[in-house]
C-alpha cells in the first residue's frame, strides 16, 4: 500500500468527521439562535402573574393559565389514548398479522397516514368528532383528533422497537412453554419498552406543538377561564395562544408571545427529560 493512498484515506476520514460536525453545528446554531431570541424578547415577561392570569386586552395583565391547562389536558388525554392503542396495534402487526398481503397493505397505509398533513386530520376531526358525534368544541374532541394524528407515528415507532428485540428472545420464551401472549407480555414488551417509550414521547411532543388541526376543530383563541370538564368546556392550547398574540400589531403582545413560546419549550424539555430518565431506568439491564 503506497503512502499516497494512506494519505487519501486519512483525508477522507477527516473530511467526513468535519461534515458530520457541520451538520450538528447547523442544527444547534438554529436552535440556540431561536432560544436566545425568545429569551431576549420574552424572558422578562415570564413571572408568576404570567402563569396565573388569563389572556387580556392589556398585555401587561395577560397570562397563559387557560392555555397551559388546556395543553396539559389535551396532552394527558392524548398520551392515555394513544399508548394502549398504538402499542397493541404494533404488537398485532409485528407478532400476529404475519407477512401476508393484507398485513403489508396495513403497514403501507399506516406509513401513509403518518405523512398526511395535520390540517387534514383537523378537517376529519371537525366532521367526525365535533359535528357527527356531537362532542362540540371541547378538550375531548381535540384530544381525539390529535390522537388520530400521532397514532401512526406511535404505531410505527413501537413496531420498530418490537422488531429490534432479537428473535432469540422470542425463541427463548417459546422454548420454555410460553404462549404467544406470555411471550409478548414477559419477554417482548419488557425488552422493547425503552424504544416504545421514546417513540411515544416524541409523538406526544408533536401533539403538544400542533396548531393547525386545533384551529379547525375550534380551539378558541380568547379563553378567560380554565377548562375543568374536558367533555364540556371550551379550551385553548399554548400554540394557539402564541399564534393569536403573535398576530397582533402591538409590541407588548409580541413580547408575551415570546414568553409563551419559552414556556412551551420548557414544557417540551421537561417531557423529553422524563422520557430520558424513564428510558435509562428501563434499559439499565438491557444490553444485547
Amino acid at each position: 500500500m503506497s503512502s499516497q493512498t494512506t494519505t487519501r484515506r486519512k483525508v477522507a476520514n477527516a473530511l467526513f468527521g468535519l461534515l458530520a460536525f457541520l451538520a450538528i453545528f447547523a442544527s444547534l446554531v438554529t436552535l440556540v439562535a431561536l432560544l436566545i431570541d425568545v429569551v431576549a424578547r420574552g424572558g422578562s415577561s415570564v413571572d408568576l402573574q404570567f402563569f396565573t392570569s388569563a389572556p387580556s386586552r392589556i398585555p401587561a395583565k395577560a397570562g397563559i393559565l387557560p392555555a397551559l391547562v388546556g395543553t396539559l389536558w389535551v396532552t394527558t388525554l392524548v398520551a392515555i389514548m394513544t399508548f394502549p392503542i398504538g402499542v397493541a396495534a404494533a404488537i398485532y402487526l409485528e407478532e400476529y398479522a404475519g407477512r401476508g398481503r393484507w398485513s403489508r397493505l396495513l403497514r403501507i397505509n399506516i406509513s401513509n397516514l403518518a405523512g398526511v398533513p395535520s390540517i387534514v386530520y383537523g378537517i376529519f376531526g371537525l366532521a367526525l368528532f365535533v359535528r357527527l358525534l356531537g362532542l362540540g368544541r371541547t378538550v375531548f374532541a381535540a384530544a381525539l383528533t390529535l390522537s388520530l394524528l400521532i397514532l401512526p407515528v406511535v404505531i410505527i415507532s413501537s413496531m420498530e422497537a418490537i422488531r429490534a428485540v432479537p428473535p432469540s428472545q422470542r425463541e427463548a420464551a417459546y422454548a420454555l412453554g410460553a404462549t404467544r401472549w406470555q411471550m409478548v407480555r414477559r419477554a417482548l414488551l419488557p425488552a422493547a419498552a425503552p424504544g416504545i417509550l421514546t417513540g411515544i414521547v416524541l409523538a406526544v411532543g408533536r401533539a403538544v406543538g400542533e396548531t393547525a388541526p386545533l384551529i379547525l376543530i375550534g380551539a378558541v383563541t380568547f379563553v378567560t377561564f380554565v377548562p375543568v370538564n374536558p367533555f364540556e368546556d371550551k379550551y385553548t392550547v399554548l400554540p394557539i395562544q402564541i399564534f393569536n398574540w403573535a398576530g397582533r400589531p402591538q409590541a407588548a403582545f409580541q413580547e408575551i408571545s415570546a414568553a409563551a413560546i419559552l414556556v412551551l419549550l420548557v414544557l417540551m424539555f421537561l417531557l423529553n427529560l422524563v422520557a430520558v430518565i424513564l428510558r435509562a431506568r428501563l434499559s439499565r439491564t438491557i444490553q444485547w
Binding site: P166, S168, Q169, E171, A172, A173, A175, L176, A187, P190, A191, T285, I286, Q287
Partner: peptide, 11 residues
C-alpha cells in the same frame, strides 16, 4: 426443553 446456539438470557 431447549438450549440454543448463542446464549440468550433475558434482559
Amino acid at each position: 426443553g431447549m438450549v440454543f446456539q448463542k446464549p440468550n438470557p433475558f434482559p
